[in-house]
Nucleic acid binder design. Structure first.
Lengths: 336, 336
DNA sequence: TGCGGTTGTGCTCACATGAGCAGACGGTCG
DNA sequence: CGACCGTCTGCTCATGTGAGCACAACCGCA
């Protein structure tokens, strides 16, 4: 090992070089003159400084992305694509940034889907709102799971699909049925109806899907809408449900939590989602980590749009927030 | 004004370009290919991004400095030099970083002083400790104001001067008298003593001075050492004293707060300090802002070593801590 | 419609920079 | 003591990048 002296002296030099280069915009040559080293050494000092994390470059913008995490996610989970936005401290802000990112993704995604299958919920509604008018031309939209019109929340199932379609100058086809039926026979009957089966059939043929997921707890829209009772949720949680994907509750293993309930759930099946070449999952926020993991690890989505905390949780990374433990290194060097 | 659309679209493009350039290390040419613009436009986007503060480059290192502030300080207060260190949250840490910076400055300062006049106190002692052994060769040190040997604190006046001299292989000349005498006659008598007057004479001939300053409150070393009582301090404060420089209490106007007291204070005078071409003030921490301002605005120091908060306070800058108000700008742009 | 003024564009050219390489240095081990 | 090895140094050369410039597009204004 080289004498510690030299290493420390170099570190200090590197700091000085970095200051002159990045804060004073001097050329490496000029810096060399000041620090009395050759310009090549200055270049090397700067390289070292970057490596060791002495120089921290950050892109501060609400629309910035975390490309490194995106790359890791696509690699690890065999995704076609991933979008990771930096997480603001505020949770509401986080949701809208993720939604915005999803909108951006949709706008620039090629090939443009001929027919887009969408689910509904708070997240999806935000995505719809974030889409600019004229985001595309002639994209038709089909609803892929049963929806609510009785929702108290602004933006029910129908309006989400309609808004997305309208803004692209396309038509929306709705699935005007409950999400979950009380009795299997009723579900079968409705499913048998020509109009309904036609929509489901159309949904199966969509060239891309855009959906979010819910958490298995009483804050779920399913409870709000009256499709499920808090007791139903408790039962699902007991069976290991972590959340729902297009109305179907799954466990951490990516399997249906309650087949009987699932049979009464109307709309596209998980297998169709899995088989699709473009299924875009939009999901963010701490409570949804578990569902996100279930979906992503079991191939239910091909594109993931999320926030950086969720991304890190999925990858099993510590949520370090840039602590390159520099404050601890307080070197001391000799006179020159 | 250009359509807001274009501006927003460019901002987003700039963000994407910045990500690819700084996080992914792509060349501007490659980025151009990805974003479908020419490489010159990429260059301009990056320049914009830097200007607007979308890209934040920070040098995170305990020994980093704030060159921009240093430049401003030297310009505003006609200093020969300034050293500003980034302020850590911890106050103890701050003191030691400022001291370290002062030591660094002393080590690399040219011309090397033949004889260095030093004051004493907590700060100066830390500077002495931070100096590396052999920081220079043959620098002699002379104490410029009366000191304490009775101090309870580690590192009294004598040891500070001695340590600085020893580490440079030079000799220390001490001023072994009280800082402030009770009676004017006693002060005159001591001053008349050949040994004492010799030292003061020597101090006047120092080629550089290194000193700190104290706050006018009861935490002062002068109170601790028994030279002043809390009542004395109260009286000084009433007269507008903000702190002491080499034992002499001054007001915000840079004048002696209490001439009678000052006459009983032994050591170098303020005018000698002001006249010196190299008088290095080492000062940091919120409580000392007022003294620092008094010293700096009245030409008592030619070199200032401090922390960034003090620097900003002196310059009247808001202590913004990098808030380029970006989080508020949430643009929206059209499809391409 | 025509016309300055302003803004944005693609380019040339000179300069700044990183990759790669031969030699120097300094320590280790036979 | 000298051969060896890893590291650091200063260099050449190819490439990346910013300044400056001419021109095009577009604005308001007559």
């Amino acid at each position: 090992m080289v004498p510690a002296d030299t290493a420390a002296a170099n570190e200090l030099l590197a700091v000085r070089a970095a200051e002159l280069y990045y804060e004073e915009n001097k050329t490496q040559d000029e810096i060399g003159a000041i620090l009395r080293v050759t310009r090549w050494k200055v270049g090397r000092l700067l390289a070292q400084a970057r490596e060791r994390g002495i120089i921290r470059i950050e892109i501060v913008h609400p629309r910035a992305r975390r490309l490194a995490l995106e790359r890791e996610l696509t690699a690890r989970f065999a995704l076609n694509d991933a979008v990771v936005v930096p997480a603001p401290s505020d949770d509401v802000e986080l949701q809208s940034r993720v939604a915005e990112a999803a909108a951006d993704y949709l706008v620039s995604h090629r090939p443009v889907p001929r027919l887009l299958g969408v689910s509904w919920g708070r997240t999806l509604h935000q995505v719809a709102e974030a889409l600019p008018v004229g985001w595309s031309t002639g994209v038709n939209v089909v609803q892929i799971n049963g929806g609510v019109s009785l929702s108290k929340r602004p933006g029910n199932a129908a309006s989400t699909a309609v808004m997305i379609a309208q803004k692209a100058g396309g038509q929306a086809t709705l699935l005007p049925t409950p999400a979950i039926l009380e009795r299997l026979e009723t579900k079968r009957a409705i499913e048998g109806d020509r109009t309904v089966s036609g929509v489901v059939q159309m949904a199966r043929g969509a060239s891309a899907y855009l959906y979010s997921a819910g958490v298995a707890d009483t804050s779920s829209v399913h409870v709000d809408s009256g499709y499920l009772t808090p007791a139903d949720i408790s039962r699902l949680v007991e069976r290991g449900a972590v959340g729902d994907v297009i109305g179907r509750y799954i466990t951490a293993d990516g399997t249906i939590a309650d087949p009987e309930l699932d049979a009464r759930t109307l709309g596209l099946g998980l297998e169709e989602l899995r088989a699709s070449s473009t299924s875009i999952l939009v999901i963010g926020g701490e409570p949804k980590h578990a569902v996100a993991r279930a979906i992503v690890t079991h191939g239910l989505c091909s594109v993931l749009v999320t926030d950086e905390h969720t991304a890190r949780a999925l990858l099993g990374h510590p949520d370090d927030t840039h602590d390159h433990d520099l404050a601890t290194t307080v070197p001391r060097e000799d006179a020159s």
